[in-house]
Structures are given as structure tokens and as C-alpha cells.
Nucleic acid binder design. Structure first.
Lengths: 284, 284
DNA sequence: ACACTAAATGTAGTAAAATTACAACTTGCG
DNA sequence: CGCAAGTTGTAATTTTACTACATTTAGTGT
């Protein structure tokens, strides 16, 4: 896709003169997009048709089209790419890498989301009698966060870290209850069991997990997130951020579905916090 | 910077014919970059010089230069911009908006991070005798997540949701202990008090909070995150994701500082989970 | 080593595209 | 109503890109 990479790759297949053109462009692509074919030919010390042929070889329609592609490649000095942290990275490098990898993962996750499924789950949640959020390990904090969002909605929300509590809670489920289970891998045994228990008690089970996993097969609805492999730090990172963002999406969908008046209510909830905080005006 | 936005903004200042051109381009920018000035003039039902004048009005050198700019704007599928969710947004729209806003916020946050401070805090954490993570409300789940990361490092980690437990924990601090306090606003009274308690007991206090806030003034080290105003859903969203990513950065810095052998250790920690999971090979 | 072929490169002419200069037309205001 | 400022279009000019063909270069077999 990226034309600069393409040039580098195909460089071996180019002829001598074409390689001269490639070198000049790679050395200074910014100049290249602002040059005419004549200028570029002179810079590369080749004839104009050679430049043109060079463009065609890269599957562009001609020089102007090539410039367009080049401009696009230069536009965002390669957007956010998943880059692995290296042993020798300094703080500057690993900070940047982690942020950018996270953004890249979010982008991938976004594209993989099934909007229809989101819509159905939002529907489900708005009609739920009781909503439970369960996760274990890293996903526990995601469930925790979901609790924090949804308890504002004036629906009974349940969250436990303890698997026994989770089990018991699911035992007591009835029709109309929604259980949201969060697990990146979808292979955590006890969560799969919980899904089963909840379903046998007529609850609707929503899984935020990877498609095709054992957990996903026990769920009524699955919201799967395609997240590139986590950075090799042996810790879930990007997956968890994507899950949280999905929670945000669900929460937002929920509030939108409930309409305007409901949102004023949320503002009131937020305003009750005021007493626990230092007034903003006290600062300078 | 982005030329499409620029067109939208300046649209009022355009003349009638120029607006026609603007409309055609905005309606179908992809076509526009592949058209000649003549084609575009015909599509907009104006003369060629009008198109040229339109380009100049946008501070480009002429039509080809304009196309270059346009191509660049289109390249990054419009980078991530903070867009507010609208009452009438469908699931598709709000999902996209939330993901993109989150990414945009991460980008802003990344740029605002003081890498030197991160490095110092990583130093501090690697030398800590005990690390505590406290937050309230939405930040509680961030602290929760931090616990999940750092407990793998074989350092005593503490996390409480309960303010009384938090207080008591800080009372028992000694020199060498590090207390990390998380709060987006930095105005939560009890957290500020806790910071104070921890410091009087010789602990080092790190604040993940906004610069200049009451909390930040009570901390030995502040990691501030500049996050654009949260989407107007009256819930912390982007701020929390940025905090989590910062936690990831700290955790990564920690493991890098500790070296190779330590990372193998992490792998072992991860592998102990295997027993609690369904084997990957059981799937199809 | 030479000749022949195929590929590569350049030259010159042509077509297309963009720009300029200027003329005709609106629009607003005294 | 008429004049001035601003807009738009026409036609000529210039620049740019492309094509066809000629020349060169490199490679292969005898």
C-alpha cells in the first residue's frame, strides 16, 4: 500500500536509471511531490520518459498519479503501527511505542466490531432488570470499570471479583437479567462455567471475548474484539483498553437510547460528587 | 492543517461559484483528486479558472498543489479527531466516534507526557519496598488494573477501594514505600488527605493527576496527563484510558529496568494461569 | 570476438493540463 | 440609473506530461 515501502521493495527489480529515480525520491520525497517530471528527471540525471516509466512500474497511471500516492504515503509518516518494545529502548521510546501500539490496536479493534451486535446488546441492556459484570485477572478491572459506568444509570448493577460470589450471583439470576462476561482469551474455565450457570437460570449472557472461544460458545451474544497480539511484556495491555472502550460504547449507546431527560439525570449524579471535591475556583 | 476541514470552515467566505466547487469536492473528495481541473470544473458547473481561484484561496499554489494537499488529508482517513456524540447518532456513528475520540485523546496525552518524570517514577518504583495504588470512582478501576500489573513483579503491592483502608494503609507507610494516587481532576478531598498522610509517614507520593490540582501539590512526583475534555456523557472516558496507558508505560519501564531474567519470570507467572484455562488446542 | 536480439534510455514532437490576461457580467450603493 | 468592486467566464499562453520512435546498451549464442 505505502508507495515508499513499495519502492524500497521493488528496487531490485528496477533498471539502472529507474533506480536513480528511486534513490532521489527516497532521499527526499518531500521535494519530489513538489517537483515536475522535468525537474525530477534532471535531479535523477535521467530523461523524462524514464521517470514516467518508473511511475508506471509502480502501478500508477503516470507521474501525477504517482505524486498523489506519494503524497498520501507522506501524509502521516506512517500512522500508528504496532511496534514492539525493545530491550534497549529508553523511556522516550517505550512511552511512544506503547501509546502508539495502543492506538493502533484500538483502530484494529474498531474495524472488527460488529455494530449490529453492539446495537442488540445495547437494546438488551436498556431492558435489563439487573446487569452483572464479571471478569477475572486483568479483565476484572474492566468489569470494575463497567460497574462504575452503569451504576449511574439507575439499573441494579452487580460486580464481583470473587468467583464464588460470581457463581452465587448467577445462581440467583432470573429472566430479564443480563450477565456480561469479560475475558480476552475466552478460555478461563470458571468464567465459562459461570456463563453456563447464568444461562440455565434464564439470564441472557453477553460475552466480551474473542470469537470462537469456549466462552463465546456459551454466550447468547458475543461482542468480539480483534486485537493484535499484546506487546510481548506478558501482560494484557491493548486488549484491555479495547474492552474498556467497548464498555464506553455500550454505556454511550445506553444513554442515547434513554433520551435527553435521562442524560440530565446523569449530570445530577455527577454533580453530587461536588461535595467530595475541592472547588475548582479555589485554585489559581 | 487538514484541507477538508479548512474548506468547511472557510465555506462562508467563498463566493457562490467557489462554494459550488467546495460542495463537489466535499461530496466526493476521492474523485476530486483523480480529476483534472477541466473535469472538476465541469462537475461543479463553473469555469476552470474558478476552480483555480478556489485552490489559491485555500493557500495552495494552484490546482495540482491543492490535489496534493487533498490527497494528504484523505490519506490518514482523517486522523483521529475528538468528535462529540450526537443525540441522533446511530450505533455505527457513536461507536466510531468513541473509538476515534479515544485515540485522539491518547495522542494528545502522549504528547503531554513528561518523559523525564516517567523515568524518575520508574526508578522510584523499581526501588520501592512496597507500592500502593489508590483511586476513587472511575480511577479506582485504574488502580485496580495497576495492581494487576504490578503484583506480577514480585514487589508487595497494595490496592484498596475503601477510603478507610486506604488511610490506614498510608498510616503504616515507611520510607521506601511508594504511594501512587490516581485522580483525573485531582480534587477529590479524601485522596488529597491520603497524599498528606502518606508523606508524613515518609512514603514517596506519586500523583497521576492533572497538573496544578490540589492533589498534585501534595505529591512528590506528578505524572500529569493532558486529556481533552471527556465526551459530554458526564462520565470519565478518555481520561481513564490515558491513565491506564500510562500505567502500561510504567509497568513496561519497570520490566525493562529489571532486565532479561526478570522478564522470563513474568512469562512463568503468565504460564501458571494455564491450569485455569481451556487449552488452546481443544478448539477447532 | 562478433553479430544479433532484446531491453533500456533518450530525443523530439504532441497532447493535455494548468495558468494568465483580459473581457463580460453581476451586485450593491450613492 | 450609473458606477465601482467584486465575480465569473473566454481565449490565449505556458507549463507539464505523454507518445512514438530512434539510439544506445547489455546480453547471448556462434
Amino acid at each position: 500500500m505505502n508507495i515508499l515501502e513499495k519502492i524500497t521493495q521493488n528496487k531490485a527489480a528496477f533498471s539502472k536509471s529507474e533506480r536513480k529515480v528511486a534513490d532521489v525520491i527516497l532521499a527526499n520525497p518531500q521535494t519530489a511531490i513538489h517537483s515536475s517530471i522535468a525537474t525530477l528527471a534532471k535531479m535523477s540525471d535521467v530523461s523524462e520518459p524514464t521517470v514516467n516509466r518508473f511511475c508506471r512500474r509502480l502501478d500508477t497511471k503516470g507521474f501525477p498519479d504517482f505524486k498523489l500516492h506519494l503524497a498520501q504515503s507522506l501524509a502521516n509518516g506512517t500512522p500508528y503501527v504496532n511496534r514492539h518494545v525493545d530491550e534497549n529502548d529508553g523511556p522516550d521510546e517505550y512511552t511512544t511505542k506503547i501509546f502508539e501500539s495502543t492506538m493502533a490496536s484500538l483502530e484494529v479493534a474498531r474495524q472488527s466490531i460488529d455494530v449490529q451486535a453492539v446495537n442488540r446488546v445495547v437494546d438488551l441492556l436498556t431492558q435489563a432488570q439487573k446487569i452483572s459484570f464479571f471478569g477475572l485477572g486483568a479483565s476484572a478491572s474492566v468489569a470494575h470499570d463497567a460497574l462504575n459506568k452503569f451504576f449511574r444509570f439507575n439499573v441494579p448493577v452487580v460486580y464481583f471479583e470473587d468467583i464464588l460470589m460470581q457463581r452465587m450471583s448467577c445462581m440467583n439470576c432470573t429472566a430479564g437479567d443480563v450477565v456480561v462476561l469479560i475475558s480476552h482469551t475466552g478460555r478461563t474455565k470458571s468464567l465459562v462455567e459461570i456463563a453456563n450457570i447464568a444461562r440455565s437460570n434464564d439470564a441472557t449472557v453477553v460475552g466480551i471475548t474473542s470469537a470462537g472461544s469456549p466462552l463465546s460458545q456459551e454466550c447468547n451474544y458475543v461482542l468480539s474484539l480483534e486485537v493484535p497480539e499484546d506487546t510481548d511484556m506478558y501482560m494484557p495491555m491493548a486488549s484491555r483498553i479495547a474492552q474498556l472502550t467497548l464498555i464506553d460504547v455500550l454505556a454511550t449507546g445506553f444513554t442515547l437510547r434513554r433520551g435527553n431527560k435521562f442524560r440530565e439525570n446523569l449530570k445530577r449524579v455527577k454533580d453530587t460528587l461536588r461535595g467530595s471535591r475541592y472547588d475548582k475556583r479555589n485554585e489559581i
